[in-house]
Design a protein around this nucleic acid. Structure first.
Length: 283
DNA sequence: CTGGACCGC
DNA sequence: GCGGTCCAG
């Protein structure tokens, strides 16, 4: 058997080396996800300084191309979910409708909330980043919104009425050319479901920064940029009004949650955005 | 996966 | 009617 030529050696070793290096880069990156500020969904700041570190199980950063969130292991829900919404996020991908445990982003030994945990609870599997906000191809965008780390138990009348109407109006603003920076979550204690594995929040809240038409760069945000914030009761059998009924200041949500929003903006602009209640943009 | 329900526009 | 949110089987 003749010795392999130099060329044959290279044809074997080179791909092997490339594969090895790629594997090293891949594993290194999956342990250290993109820095939070580089993700388009978290440009305004990280409200609870969440980190992707199992030592902080109740403020555990999960970054996806579709949204970024802080997960609370002991609540089985996100603390908050943050995403950017633009016209190019809206498309024709059908609603996946398949709620799934998040098996890729949580430490193996943590409890992984299952779709069955919500069945018969009386609460909806309430999307924070909505399905319809991630309807542009590929399908993974929509499927990602059905991961249960993006879900919290939401009273049906909250989810399907006031909350849904605000989501729908938001998409209407986006179709008129506005880019939105959105962050949503729950606060308070309305008991638990699934034998205590999932905490039900007493309120759901949402903050929306409405960018000038055609702008997505946060340096274009001024003290006059509209901000819409709501905090909606999450009680079964609550009688709900229009979402405008529930408008609050961002300062109110900060004082209740202890989070700090808009930390990537100047303190002057923060002060303005947090203390005003803006009129509702035209839909 | 399908079919059925709700709601608001 | 439609499009959005779900549910149960």
């Amino acid at each position: 058997m003749p010795l392999p030529s130099k060329n044959q050696m290279i044809s074997w070793i080179l791909p092997l080396l490339v594969a090895l290096i790629a594997l090293i880069i891949y594993t290194t990156n999956s342990q250290k996800p993109d820095t939070a500020n580089g993700n388009r969904n978290l440009r305004l700041g990280n409200p609870s300084t969440a980190v992707h570190d199992p030592a902080q199980p109740d403020n555990y950063l999960i970054e996806r191309p579709q949204y970024v969130l802080s997960y609370n292991r002991d609540h089985g829900t996100p603390n908050w979910v943050s995403w950017r919404l633009t016209e190019s996020d809206l498309g024709d991908v059908p609603r996946s409708n398949v709620f799934k445990s998040d098996t890729t982003m949580l430490p193996d030994e943590w409890y992984h909330v299952r779709t069955d945990d919500y069945t018969g609870s009386g609460y909806d599997r309430g999307h924070m980043c909505p399905s319809a906000d991630r309807s542009a191809p590929p399908e993974e965008n929509n499927q990602a919104t059905f991961l249960l780390t993006n879900i919290l138990p939401q009273a049906p009348n909250n989810n399907r009425e006031a909350w849904e109407q605000l989501e729908s109006d938001s998409r209407s603003w986006v179709r008129k050319g506005h880019v939105l920076y959105v962050i949503a979550g729950g606060d308070g204690d309305n008991g638990t479901i699934a034998d205590g594995k999932i905490q039900v929040p007493k309120y759901t809240w949402k903050i929306i920064v409405v960018m000038p038409v055609g702008e997505s760069d946060i340096t274009k945000i001024t003290a006059e940029t509209p901000v819409i914030a709501v905090r909606i009761p999450n009680n079964l059998n609550e009688k709900f009004g229009d979402w405008e009924t529930y408008q609050v200041t961002v300062a109110k949500i900060e004082s209740i949650t202890g989070y700090h929003f808009f930390t990537n903006l100047s303190s002057e602009i923060q002060q303005s955005l947090k203390t005003k209640k803006d009129p509702v943009p035209a839909t």
